[in-house]
Every structure is written in C-alpha cells, then in structure tokens.
Amino acid sequence: MTARKMLQVDWVPGSDQLRGRCHCGAETIAEDPVAMWQWLLAHPNHQDHSPVREEAA
C-alpha cells in the first residue's frame, strides 16, 4: 500500500486509552474519542504531543 494521508486511532489493547496518529506523524493519547478527533483534526495545529488532558467540559 502506498503512503496515503491516513489518520489512525488505536484503542490500546488492555487499556481504556486511545492512541491517535496524524498523517504528519504526530501522536497523542486520549481518554475519549471526541477529544481525540478534535486533536487529530487540528492538524497542523496539534495542541501538543503529550497526552491530551481532561477535555473541556
């Protein structure tokens, strides 16, 4: 398969965490999918590359 612009979210086996990877290579960990998609779709302005904290209410 050629390198396509893929966004990927893995539900980390054995945990409740999601790991997201942008097509630019940036990665993050999130606790819920809403926060995860927000983070991914912010490309190229990803919040930071460390785990996403509590999502805003």
């Binding site: 396509r4 612009k5 990927q8 539900w11 097509h23």
Partner: peptide, 11 residues
Amino acid sequence: TPIVTRVDEEA
C-alpha cells in the same frame, strides 16, 4: 475487543 479506526481523507 478493542477497535482500530482509520480515516482515509483522500479516498
């Protein structure tokens, strides 16, 4: 069972 989700924007 955990899932893997991928989005292919171009396709």
